[in-house]
Nucleic acid binder design. Sequence first.
DNA 1: TAAGAGAAAATTGGATCCAATCAACATCGA
DNA 2: TCGATGTTGATTGGATCCAATTTTCTCTTA
Lengths: 228, 228
Amino acid sequence: MTSDVVEAGSTSTVASQRIAGRLREDILSGVLQPGERIRQEEVAAQFGASRLPVREALRILHSQGLVQLKASSGAWVSRLDLAECEAIYKMRERLEPLALAESIPHLDANVLGHIDALQSEIESNDDQDRFLELDRELHLLCYTGNPISELNRMVQRFWDTTQSYRRAFVRVTGPQRMWVVNAEHRLLIDAIRRRDISDGERFLTAHIRRTRISLALHPEVFDVGAGR
Amino acid sequence: MTSDVVEAGSTSTVASQRIAGRLREDILSGVLQPGERIRQEEVAAQFGASRLPVREALRILHSQGLVQLKASSGAWVSRLDLAECEAIYKMRERLEPLALAESIPHLDANVLGHIDALQSEIESNDDQDRFLELDRELHLLCYTGNPISELNRMVQRFWDTTQSYRRAFVRVTGPQRMWVVNAEHRLLIDAIRRRDISDGERFLTAHIRRTRISLALHPEVFDVGAGR
DNA sequence: TAAGAGAAAATTGGATCCAATCAACATCGA
DNA sequence: TCGATGTTGATTGGATCCAATTTTCTCTTA
Protein backbone atom coordinates (compact mmCIF):
# COMPACT_ATOMS: atom_id res chain seq x y z
CA MET A 1 0.00 0.00 0.00
CA THR A 2 2.65 2.43 -0.98
CA SER A 3 0.12 3.81 -3.39
CA ASP A 4 -2.71 4.62 -0.99
CA VAL A 5 -0.80 7.79 -0.31
CA VAL A 6 0.27 8.56 -3.85
CA GLU A 7 -3.17 8.33 -5.39
CA ALA A 8 -5.87 9.72 -3.19
CA GLY A 9 -7.46 6.29 -2.89
CA SER A 10 -10.87 6.96 -4.33
CA THR A 11 -9.80 6.05 -7.84
CA SER A 12 -7.58 3.11 -6.99
CA THR A 13 -8.08 -0.11 -8.86
CA VAL A 14 -7.70 -2.05 -5.63
CA ALA A 15 -11.09 -2.36 -3.98
CA SER A 16 -9.84 -2.08 -0.40
CA GLN A 17 -8.09 1.21 -1.17
CA ARG A 18 -11.05 2.58 -3.06
CA ILE A 19 -13.36 1.76 -0.18
CA ALA A 20 -10.93 3.20 2.36
CA GLY A 21 -10.71 6.40 0.33
CA ARG A 22 -14.47 6.84 0.15
CA LEU A 23 -14.96 6.10 3.83
CA ARG A 24 -12.23 8.60 4.62
CA GLU A 25 -14.06 11.28 2.65
CA ASP A 26 -17.26 10.48 4.52
CA ILE A 27 -15.50 10.80 7.85
CA LEU A 28 -13.73 14.06 6.96
CA SER A 29 -16.86 15.61 5.50
CA GLY A 30 -18.87 14.71 8.56
CA VAL A 31 -21.21 12.22 6.88
CA LEU A 32 -19.86 9.68 9.34
CA GLN A 33 -19.67 11.15 12.83
CA PRO A 34 -17.12 10.33 15.54
CA GLY A 35 -18.27 7.41 17.62
CA GLU A 36 -20.49 6.06 14.87
CA ARG A 37 -20.27 2.34 14.33
CA ILE A 38 -19.18 0.99 10.96
CA ARG A 39 -20.61 -2.39 10.07
CA GLN A 40 -18.62 -4.38 7.55
CA GLU A 41 -21.66 -5.82 5.82
CA GLU A 42 -23.35 -2.44 5.38
CA VAL A 43 -20.26 -0.96 3.75
CA ALA A 44 -19.79 -4.08 1.61
CA ALA A 45 -23.35 -3.80 0.32
CA GLN A 46 -22.91 -0.08 -0.33
CA PHE A 47 -19.90 -0.74 -2.54
CA GLY A 48 -21.14 -3.98 -4.09
CA ALA A 49 -18.19 -5.92 -2.73
CA SER A 50 -17.68 -8.66 -0.20
CA ARG A 51 -16.75 -8.01 3.39
CA LEU A 52 -13.12 -8.88 2.79
CA PRO A 53 -11.95 -5.68 1.11
CA VAL A 54 -14.01 -3.77 3.65
CA ARG A 55 -12.05 -5.41 6.46
CA GLU A 56 -8.82 -4.34 4.83
CA ALA A 57 -10.19 -0.86 4.24
CA LEU A 58 -10.99 -0.60 7.93
CA ARG A 59 -7.42 -1.58 8.74
CA ILE A 60 -6.12 1.10 6.40
CA LEU A 61 -8.33 3.67 8.08
CA HIS A 62 -7.24 2.42 11.47
CA SER A 63 -3.61 2.93 10.51
CA GLN A 64 -4.56 6.49 9.56
CA GLY A 65 -6.16 6.96 12.95
CA LEU A 66 -9.63 7.54 11.53
CA VAL A 67 -11.17 4.33 12.82
CA GLN A 68 -10.93 2.42 16.07
CA LEU A 69 -11.00 -1.37 15.89
CA LYS A 70 -11.92 -3.73 18.70
CA ALA A 71 -11.13 -7.39 18.14
CA SER A 72 -14.11 -9.59 17.29
CA SER A 73 -16.31 -6.67 18.03
CA GLY A 74 -16.32 -4.00 15.39
CA ALA A 75 -15.17 -0.68 14.07
CA TRP A 76 -16.07 2.84 15.12
CA VAL A 77 -15.22 6.24 13.73
CA SER A 78 -12.47 7.52 16.02
CA ARG A 79 -13.54 9.82 18.83
CA LEU A 80 -11.38 12.21 20.75
CA ASP A 81 -11.90 13.71 24.17
CA LEU A 82 -10.48 17.11 25.00
CA ALA A 83 -7.27 15.65 26.49
CA GLU A 84 -6.57 13.56 23.39
CA CYS A 85 -7.21 16.52 21.12
CA GLU A 86 -4.91 18.75 23.16
CA ALA A 87 -2.28 16.01 22.95
CA ILE A 88 -2.51 16.04 19.16
CA TYR A 89 -2.07 19.81 19.17
CA LYS A 90 1.00 19.48 21.40
CA MET A 91 2.48 17.01 18.92
CA ARG A 92 1.62 19.38 16.08
CA GLU A 93 3.45 22.16 17.91
CA ARG A 94 6.58 20.02 17.77
CA LEU A 95 6.32 18.39 14.36
CA GLU A 96 4.79 20.98 12.06
CA PRO A 97 7.61 23.47 12.60
CA LEU A 98 9.98 20.75 11.38
CA ALA A 99 7.80 20.15 8.33
CA LEU A 100 7.87 23.88 7.69
CA ALA A 101 11.63 24.14 8.14
CA GLU A 102 12.21 21.28 5.72
CA SER A 103 9.72 22.77 3.29
CA ILE A 104 10.72 26.43 3.13
CA PRO A 105 13.92 25.98 1.07
CA HIS A 106 11.96 24.13 -1.64
CA LEU A 107 8.88 26.34 -2.01
CA ASP A 108 8.68 28.08 -5.38
CA ALA A 109 6.95 31.32 -6.36
CA ASN A 110 3.93 29.41 -7.59
CA VAL A 111 3.18 27.92 -4.20
CA LEU A 112 3.90 31.21 -2.45
CA GLY A 113 1.37 32.91 -4.70
CA HIS A 114 -1.18 30.22 -4.00
CA ILE A 115 -0.64 30.59 -0.25
CA ASP A 116 -1.24 34.34 -0.48
CA ALA A 117 -4.39 33.79 -2.51
CA LEU A 118 -5.72 31.36 0.07
CA GLN A 119 -5.11 33.78 2.92
CA SER A 120 -6.86 36.56 0.98
CA GLU A 121 -9.83 34.29 0.45
CA ILE A 122 -9.86 33.41 4.14
CA GLU A 123 -10.03 37.11 4.97
CA SER A 124 -12.94 37.77 2.63
CA ASN A 125 -14.73 34.52 3.37
CA ASP A 126 -17.62 34.31 5.83
CA ASP A 127 -18.71 30.68 5.47
CA GLN A 128 -17.56 28.45 8.29
CA ASP A 129 -17.26 25.18 6.37
CA ARG A 130 -15.37 27.02 3.67
CA PHE A 131 -12.97 28.42 6.28
CA LEU A 132 -12.27 24.90 7.45
CA GLU A 133 -11.27 23.86 3.91
CA LEU A 134 -9.21 26.97 3.24
CA ASP A 135 -7.34 26.88 6.53
CA ARG A 136 -6.45 23.23 6.04
CA GLU A 137 -5.33 23.82 2.47
CA LEU A 138 -3.24 26.82 3.49
CA HIS A 139 -1.37 25.00 6.22
CA LEU A 140 -0.76 21.83 4.25
CA LEU A 141 0.39 23.90 1.30
CA CYS A 142 3.14 25.38 3.48
CA TYR A 143 4.54 21.87 3.86
CA THR A 144 4.46 20.79 0.22
CA GLY A 145 8.18 21.44 -0.13
CA ASN A 146 9.00 19.08 2.72
CA PRO A 147 10.72 16.01 1.23
CA ILE A 148 10.17 13.83 4.34
CA SER A 149 7.09 11.96 3.19
CA GLU A 150 6.70 10.13 6.48
CA LEU A 151 6.46 13.49 8.22
CA ASN A 152 3.88 14.74 5.77
CA ARG A 153 1.80 11.65 6.42
CA MET A 154 1.94 12.26 10.17
CA VAL A 155 0.90 15.87 9.77
CA GLN A 156 -1.97 14.96 7.50
CA ARG A 157 -3.02 12.36 10.02
CA PHE A 158 -3.16 15.02 12.74
CA TRP A 159 -5.38 17.18 10.59
CA ASP A 160 -7.58 14.24 9.60
CA THR A 161 -8.23 12.96 13.08
CA THR A 162 -9.11 16.38 14.45
CA GLN A 163 -11.18 17.51 11.47
CA SER A 164 -14.62 16.85 13.02
CA TYR A 165 -13.67 18.72 16.15
CA ARG A 166 -12.28 21.71 14.30
CA ARG A 167 -15.61 21.85 12.48
CA ALA A 168 -17.53 21.73 15.75
CA PHE A 169 -15.18 24.34 17.20
CA VAL A 170 -15.66 26.95 14.47
CA ARG A 171 -19.42 26.41 14.67
CA VAL A 172 -19.30 27.16 18.37
CA THR A 173 -17.01 30.18 18.24
CA GLY A 174 -18.18 31.71 15.00
CA PRO A 175 -16.07 34.41 13.33
CA GLN A 176 -14.99 36.11 16.56
CA ARG A 177 -11.33 37.01 16.89
CA MET A 178 -10.65 35.98 13.31
CA TRP A 179 -8.25 38.93 13.22
CA VAL A 180 -5.88 36.91 15.44
CA VAL A 181 -5.85 33.99 13.03
CA ASN A 182 -5.30 36.35 10.12
CA ALA A 183 -2.46 38.17 11.85
CA GLU A 184 -0.75 34.88 12.68
CA HIS A 185 -1.21 33.62 9.13
CA ARG A 186 0.16 36.84 7.67
CA LEU A 187 3.24 36.76 9.90
CA LEU A 188 3.81 33.10 9.05
CA ILE A 189 3.47 33.73 5.34
CA ASP A 190 5.81 36.70 5.49
CA ALA A 191 8.44 34.62 7.26
CA ILE A 192 8.09 31.94 4.60
CA ARG A 193 8.52 34.55 1.84
CA ARG A 194 11.66 35.79 3.55
CA ARG A 195 12.83 32.16 3.84
CA ASP A 196 13.24 32.83 7.54
CA ILE A 197 13.01 29.39 9.06
CA SER A 198 13.39 30.54 12.69
CA ASP A 199 10.60 33.08 12.47
CA GLY A 200 8.47 30.66 10.51
CA GLU A 201 8.80 28.01 13.19
CA ARG A 202 8.15 30.54 15.91
CA PHE A 203 4.95 31.95 14.43
CA LEU A 204 3.68 28.51 13.50
CA THR A 205 4.27 27.14 17.00
CA ALA A 206 2.53 30.15 18.49
CA HIS A 207 -0.41 29.77 16.11
CA ILE A 208 -0.97 26.12 16.95
CA ARG A 209 -0.43 26.68 20.65
CA ARG A 210 -2.92 29.53 20.84
CA THR A 211 -5.46 27.42 18.98
CA ARG A 212 -4.95 24.58 21.46
CA ILE A 213 -5.60 26.92 24.34
CA SER A 214 -8.71 28.37 22.70
CA LEU A 215 -9.95 24.86 22.09
CA ALA A 216 -9.64 23.99 25.77
CA LEU A 217 -12.06 26.83 26.52
CA HIS A 218 -14.79 24.94 24.69
CA PRO A 219 -14.92 21.42 26.14
CA GLU A 220 -18.55 21.15 24.97
CA VAL A 221 -17.16 20.51 21.49
CA PHE A 222 -16.29 17.03 22.70
CA ASP A 223 -19.66 16.14 24.11
CA VAL A 224 -20.91 12.89 22.74
CA GLY A 225 -22.29 12.13 19.32
CA ALA A 226 -22.60 8.36 19.84
CA GLY A 227 -21.64 5.81 22.45
CA ARG A 228 -18.04 4.66 22.48
CA MET B 1 -6.95 -3.52 17.31
CA THR B 2 -7.00 -1.49 20.42
CA SER B 3 -5.36 -4.48 21.98
CA ASP B 4 -2.38 -4.95 19.68
CA VAL B 5 -0.79 -2.23 21.73
CA VAL B 6 -2.02 -3.32 25.12
CA GLU B 7 -0.90 -6.91 24.87
CA ALA B 8 2.39 -7.35 23.09
CA GLY B 9 0.70 -9.31 20.32
CA SER B 10 2.49 -12.60 20.60
CA THR B 11 -0.02 -14.04 23.02
CA SER B 12 -3.16 -12.61 21.48
CA THR B 13 -6.06 -14.94 20.86
CA VAL B 14 -6.62 -13.29 17.49
CA ALA B 15 -4.48 -15.04 14.91
CA SER B 16 -3.66 -11.93 12.88
CA GLN B 17 -2.32 -10.16 15.95
CA ARG B 18 -0.36 -13.17 17.10
CA ILE B 19 1.25 -13.52 13.69
CA ALA B 20 1.99 -9.80 13.50
CA GLY B 21 3.62 -9.95 16.92
CA ARG B 22 5.87 -12.83 15.99
CA LEU B 23 6.87 -11.31 12.68
CA ARG B 24 7.65 -8.07 14.50
CA GLU B 25 9.99 -9.92 16.84
CA ASP B 26 11.71 -11.55 13.89
CA ILE B 27 12.22 -8.18 12.24
CA LEU B 28 13.49 -6.45 15.38
CA SER B 29 15.82 -9.31 16.27
CA GLY B 30 17.27 -9.34 12.77
CA VAL B 31 15.98 -12.78 11.76
CA LEU B 32 14.17 -10.99 8.97
CA GLN B 33 16.46 -8.46 7.31
CA PRO B 34 15.44 -5.12 5.74
CA GLY B 35 14.53 -5.62 2.11
CA GLU B 36 13.69 -9.26 2.59
CA ARG B 37 10.51 -10.38 0.92
CA ILE B 38 7.68 -11.83 3.00
CA ARG B 39 5.49 -14.34 1.18
CA GLN B 40 2.01 -14.76 2.60
CA GLU B 41 1.89 -18.48 1.96
CA GLU B 42 5.23 -19.16 3.64
CA VAL B 43 4.17 -17.33 6.78
CA ALA B 44 0.77 -19.01 6.73
CA ALA B 45 2.40 -22.45 6.59
CA GLN B 46 4.82 -21.49 9.36
CA PHE B 47 1.93 -20.62 11.68
CA GLY B 48 -0.45 -23.33 10.51
CA ALA B 49 -3.02 -20.78 9.43
CA SER B 50 -4.53 -19.64 6.17
CA ARG B 51 -3.25 -16.67 4.24
CA LEU B 52 -6.06 -14.45 5.45
CA PRO B 53 -4.78 -13.66 8.95
CA VAL B 54 -1.31 -13.27 7.43
CA ARG B 55 -2.64 -10.59 5.11
CA GLU B 56 -4.10 -8.74 8.07
CA ALA B 57 -0.88 -9.22 10.03
CA LEU B 58 1.05 -7.64 7.17
CA ARG B 59 -1.29 -4.68 7.27
CA ILE B 60 -0.74 -4.32 10.99
CA LEU B 61 3.02 -4.38 10.46
CA HIS B 62 2.67 -1.92 7.61
CA SER B 63 0.81 0.47 9.89
CA GLN B 64 3.73 0.13 12.32
CA GLY B 65 6.14 0.96 9.52
CA LEU B 66 7.91 -2.38 9.70
CA VAL B 67 6.70 -3.68 6.36
CA GLN B 68 6.26 -2.13 2.94
CA LEU B 69 3.31 -3.28 0.85
CA LYS B 70 2.98 -2.99 -2.89
CA ALA B 71 -0.45 -3.63 -4.33
CA SER B 72 -0.88 -7.04 -6.00
CA SER B 73 2.80 -7.53 -5.67
CA GLY B 74 3.91 -8.38 -2.18
CA ALA B 75 5.38 -7.37 1.13
CA TRP B 76 8.95 -6.54 2.09
CA VAL B 77 10.63 -5.78 5.37
CA SER B 78 10.99 -2.00 5.37
CA ARG B 79 14.32 -0.61 4.26
CA LEU B 80 15.71 2.80 4.96
CA ASP B 81 18.34 4.76 3.13
CA LEU B 82 20.51 7.26 4.96
CA ALA B 83 18.24 10.19 4.15
CA GLU B 84 15.16 8.41 5.48
CA CYS B 85 16.99 7.40 8.63
CA GLU B 86 18.21 10.93 9.21
CA ALA B 87 14.64 12.12 8.73
CA ILE B 88 13.45 9.78 11.46
CA TYR B 89 16.14 11.12 13.78
CA LYS B 90 15.04 14.68 13.02
CA MET B 91 11.48 13.75 13.94
CA ARG B 92 12.77 12.07 17.10
CA GLU B 93 14.60 15.29 18.00
CA ARG B 94 11.26 17.06 17.98
CA LEU B 95 8.94 14.48 19.46
CA GLU B 96 10.92 12.64 22.11
CA PRO B 97 11.55 15.79 24.14
CA LEU B 98 7.78 16.20 24.30
CA ALA B 99 7.39 12.60 25.43
CA LEU B 100 10.01 13.25 28.08
CA ALA B 101 8.39 16.50 29.22
CA GLU B 102 5.02 14.81 29.57
CA SER B 103 6.63 11.87 31.33
CA ILE B 104 8.88 13.52 33.93
CA PRO B 105 6.12 14.68 36.30
CA HIS B 106 4.79 11.12 36.54
CA LEU B 107 7.98 9.10 37.01
CA ASP B 108 8.25 7.48 40.41
CA ALA B 109 11.33 6.42 42.39
CA ASN B 110 11.00 2.87 41.13
CA VAL B 111 11.42 3.86 37.52
CA LEU B 112 14.22 6.28 38.38
CA GLY B 113 16.09 3.49 40.11
CA HIS B 114 15.58 1.20 37.15
CA ILE B 115 16.90 3.89 34.81
CA ASP B 116 20.04 4.28 36.92
CA ALA B 117 20.56 0.54 36.98
CA LEU B 118 20.29 0.35 33.21
CA GLN B 119 22.85 3.10 32.73
CA SER B 120 25.24 1.37 35.13
CA GLU B 121 24.85 -1.83 33.16
CA ILE B 122 25.50 0.05 29.93
CA GLU B 123 28.74 1.38 31.38
CA SER B 124 29.97 -2.04 32.49
CA ASN B 125 28.67 -3.85 29.41
CA ASP B 126 30.87 -4.74 26.46
CA ASP B 127 28.52 -6.75 24.26
CA GLN B 128 27.17 -4.82 21.30
CA ASP B 129 23.81 -6.55 20.94
CA ARG B 130 23.29 -6.16 24.66
CA PHE B 131 24.04 -2.44 24.39
CA LEU B 132 21.34 -2.16 21.75
CA GLU B 133 18.77 -3.70 24.11
CA LEU B 134 19.85 -1.68 27.13
CA ASP B 135 19.94 1.63 25.30
CA ARG B 136 16.49 1.07 23.88
CA GLU B 137 15.09 0.04 27.25
CA LEU B 138 16.67 3.03 28.97
CA HIS B 139 15.25 5.57 26.56
CA LEU B 140 11.78 4.08 26.40
CA LEU B 141 11.72 3.81 30.17
CA CYS B 142 12.19 7.58 30.38
CA TYR B 143 8.86 7.96 28.57
CA THR B 144 6.80 5.52 30.61
CA GLY B 145 5.22 8.38 32.56
CA ASN B 146 3.95 10.01 29.38
CA PRO B 147 0.16 9.69 29.33
CA ILE B 148 -0.15 10.47 25.60
CA SER B 149 -0.39 6.94 24.28
CA GLU B 150 -0.44 8.05 20.67
CA LEU B 151 2.90 9.75 21.21
CA ASN B 152 4.37 6.67 22.85
CA ARG B 153 3.29 4.64 19.84
CA MET B 154 5.00 7.05 17.48
CA VAL B 155 8.23 6.97 19.48
CA GLN B 156 8.22 3.19 19.63
CA ARG B 157 7.66 3.15 15.90
CA PHE B 158 10.73 5.31 15.37
CA TRP B 159 12.82 2.91 17.42
CA ASP B 160 11.35 -0.13 15.70
CA THR B 161 11.93 1.03 12.15
CA THR B 162 15.52 2.05 12.81
CA GLN B 163 16.45 -0.98 14.93
CA SER B 164 18.29 -2.91 12.20
CA TYR B 165 20.34 0.11 11.30
CA ARG B 166 21.27 0.91 14.87
CA ARG B 167 22.50 -2.66 15.12
CA ALA B 168 24.56 -2.31 11.96
CA PHE B 169 25.86 1.04 13.21
CA VAL B 170 27.18 -0.21 16.56
CA ARG B 171 28.81 -3.14 14.78
CA VAL B 172 30.63 -0.73 12.51
CA THR B 173 31.70 1.78 15.14
CA GLY B 174 32.37 -0.58 18.01
CA PRO B 175 32.80 0.81 21.53
CA GLN B 176 34.67 3.94 20.50
CA ARG B 177 33.55 7.22 22.06
CA MET B 178 31.14 5.41 24.36
CA TRP B 179 32.10 7.99 26.95
CA VAL B 180 30.09 10.56 25.01
CA VAL B 181 26.97 8.42 25.12
CA ASN B 182 27.48 7.80 28.82
CA ALA B 183 27.98 11.47 29.59
CA GLU B 184 24.82 12.39 27.68
CA HIS B 185 22.86 9.66 29.42
CA ARG B 186 24.11 10.73 32.84
CA LEU B 187 23.21 14.36 32.23
CA LEU B 188 19.79 13.35 30.95
CA ILE B 189 19.13 11.11 33.93
CA ASP B 190 20.25 13.80 36.35
CA ALA B 191 17.88 16.30 34.78
CA ILE B 192 15.06 13.79 35.08
CA ARG B 193 15.88 13.21 38.77
CA ARG B 194 15.79 16.97 39.31
CA ARG B 195 12.46 17.08 37.44
CA ASP B 196 14.07 19.70 35.24
CA ILE B 197 12.06 19.48 32.04
CA SER B 198 14.02 22.18 30.17
CA ASP B 199 17.38 20.56 30.80
CA GLY B 200 15.95 17.14 30.11
CA GLU B 201 14.64 18.25 26.74
CA ARG B 202 17.91 19.99 25.94
CA PHE B 203 20.16 17.02 26.72
CA LEU B 204 17.84 14.59 24.98
CA THR B 205 17.71 16.70 21.84
CA ALA B 206 21.48 17.02 21.84
CA HIS B 207 21.89 13.28 22.33
CA ILE B 208 19.65 12.35 19.43
CA ARG B 209 21.11 15.06 17.21
CA ARG B 210 24.70 14.00 17.84
CA THR B 211 23.75 10.40 17.09
CA ARG B 212 22.15 11.47 13.82
CA ILE B 213 25.31 13.25 12.80
CA SER B 214 27.50 10.28 13.75
CA LEU B 215 25.22 8.04 11.75
CA ALA B 216 25.68 10.18 8.66
CA LEU B 217 29.43 9.49 8.87
CA HIS B 218 28.75 5.81 8.17
CA PRO B 219 26.60 5.62 5.04
CA GLU B 220 27.89 2.08 4.47
CA VAL B 221 25.45 0.97 7.16
CA PHE B 222 22.71 1.41 4.58
CA ASP B 223 24.32 -0.62 1.84
CA VAL B 224 22.01 -3.28 0.55
CA GLY B 225 20.93 -6.51 2.14
CA ALA B 226 18.37 -7.44 -0.49
CA GLY B 227 16.78 -5.87 -3.54
CA ARG B 228 13.97 -3.41 -2.90
C1' DT C 1 -38.72 -0.47 38.63
C1' DA C 2 -34.13 -1.85 38.05
C1' DA C 3 -30.61 -5.22 37.78
C1' DG C 4 -28.87 -9.65 36.43
C1' DA C 5 -28.82 -14.07 33.96
C1' DG C 6 -29.71 -16.64 29.88
C1' DA C 7 -30.84 -17.34 25.07
C1' DA C 8 -31.15 -15.83 20.37
C1' DA C 9 -29.65 -12.89 16.76
C1' DA C 10 -26.22 -10.25 14.66
C1' DT C 11 -21.48 -9.55 13.55
C1' DT C 12 -16.82 -10.47 13.17
C1' DG C 13 -12.62 -13.81 12.34
C1' DG C 14 -10.89 -17.52 9.56
C1' DA C 15 -10.64 -21.30 5.75
C1' DT C 16 -11.06 -22.55 1.15
C1' DC C 17 -11.55 -21.66 -3.58
C1' DC C 18 -11.32 -18.78 -7.81
C1' DA C 19 -9.90 -14.75 -10.58
C1' DA C 20 -6.76 -11.12 -11.67
C1' DT C 21 -2.34 -9.26 -11.62
C1' DC C 22 2.60 -9.18 -11.63
C1' DA C 23 7.26 -10.91 -12.45
C1' DA C 24 10.48 -13.68 -14.47
C1' DC C 25 11.88 -16.22 -18.28
C1' DA C 26 12.37 -17.47 -22.90
C1' DT C 27 11.95 -16.31 -27.57
C1' DC C 28 12.34 -13.34 -31.39
C1' DG C 29 14.20 -9.57 -33.96
C1' DA C 30 17.50 -5.82 -34.81
C1' DT D 1 25.03 -9.18 -28.08
C1' DC D 2 21.40 -6.38 -26.51
C1' DG D 3 16.70 -4.98 -26.29
C1' DA D 4 11.77 -5.65 -26.84
C1' DT D 5 7.81 -8.66 -26.60
C1' DG D 6 4.94 -12.57 -25.56
C1' DT D 7 4.02 -16.37 -22.59
C1' DT D 8 3.99 -19.04 -18.41
C1' DG D 9 4.33 -19.60 -13.54
C1' DA D 10 3.91 -17.65 -9.04
C1' DT D 11 1.60 -14.64 -5.92
C1' DT D 12 -1.67 -11.59 -4.41
C1' DG D 13 -6.74 -9.76 -4.22
C1' DG D 14 -11.57 -11.03 -3.72
C1' DA D 15 -15.93 -14.04 -3.02
C1' DT D 16 -18.32 -17.37 -0.50
C1' DC D 17 -19.03 -20.26 3.31
C1' DC D 18 -18.52 -21.72 8.19
C1' DA D 19 -17.25 -21.16 13.09
C1' DA D 20 -16.68 -18.38 17.14
C1' DT D 21 -17.52 -14.40 19.66
C1' DT D 22 -20.14 -10.58 21.01
C1' DT D 23 -24.10 -7.98 21.52
C1' DT D 24 -28.76 -7.39 22.38
C1' DC D 25 -33.12 -8.68 23.73
C1' DT D 26 -36.08 -11.04 26.89
C1' DC D 27 -37.34 -13.02 30.98
C1' DT D 28 -36.80 -13.62 35.72
C1' DT D 29 -36.04 -11.98 40.36
C1' DA D 30 -35.02 -8.86 44.08
